[in-house]
Amino acid sequence: MADLNINLNHGLELQNPVLTASGTFGYGLEFQDFIDLKRLGGFIVKGTTLKLREGNPYPRMAETPSGMLNAVGLQNKGVDYFIEHIYPRIQHIKTNILVNVSGSTVSDYVATAEKINELENIPGIELNISCPNVKEGGMAFGTSCVSAAEVVKAVRKVYHKHLMIKLSPNVTDIQGIALAAEAEGADSVSLINTLLGMAIDVRKRKPLLSTVTGGLSGACVKPVALRMVWQVAKVVKIPVVGLGGIMCATDAIEFLLAGASAVQIGTANFIDPGITLKVIDGILHYLDENGFKSVKEIIGLI
């Protein structure tokens, strides 16, 4: 049987390359009835901010061809609530649990990361500099090399474990931003976050989302995500984590071939809450069938 083990550097060792994407997997507990969480390479919990966020008004979701738009707006109860009420319920789960950290100002990101740094069983954070659904920031940090560098640098000073930076696809130069994050000490980059999109109800002549625009995810974004992962993997030395429209094992293998060292499953969890384990089994089957001894052998073959 092929070896699925992947080391993403700086203390983040995965038993297999399958993680879950933030915002699609709750706090993991929502999926306990469907899968054994221990089997995952890891999971990334819901975007967490310094203070409570109520998120955007309903409607927050619109189904689109082979995908969906969301405009949740980082609804969460804040980092202190996470530490007091959620962390104690998940810390015993024997897999890598990463916290997705979001903010509106550099000092918000820093303060949140500092608090998460104290949690023994959280081996890393994913810094979300790419949320398209928050007016006052989020994506703004991830769309210029200068601001991306600024926030990564500030967080790197206070966060001493694995620092993964989640990149926005809503940019003209994804390589430049990835390189800026790498230069400031990022341990890995994950991409892509959702693509900015919109949908209209022609009968009511109104947008389908309360915020007009939202983030597109699902099968439809896969070709764009794959292209960006391939471009970034060509230029950075740190590991790349690929996500965007992975619906099955074959999709995940495409990302590995394009240069991703690991993948995240997102929107597919909504349609099949058991999809992650099927992807892990499918990758293993592919490696065995094609005579590969380790998943590392197929990373970046393209």
């Binding site: 915002g23 699609t24 997997f25 709750g26 929502e30 999926f31 819901k46 998120g55 008004p57 309903y58 409607p59 927050r60 979701m61 619109a62 189904e63 969906m68 969301n70 949740v72 609804q75 929107t267 969890n269 909504f270 809450p273």
Partner: peptide
């Protein structure tokens, strides 16, 4: 019956105020 994506409390799309 708000529009929902996951049905299991993971996506936070179907919220009611």
């Amino acid at each position: 019956e708000n529009k929902m994506a996951c049905g299991i409390g993971a996506c936070l799309c179907c919220v009611n105020d």
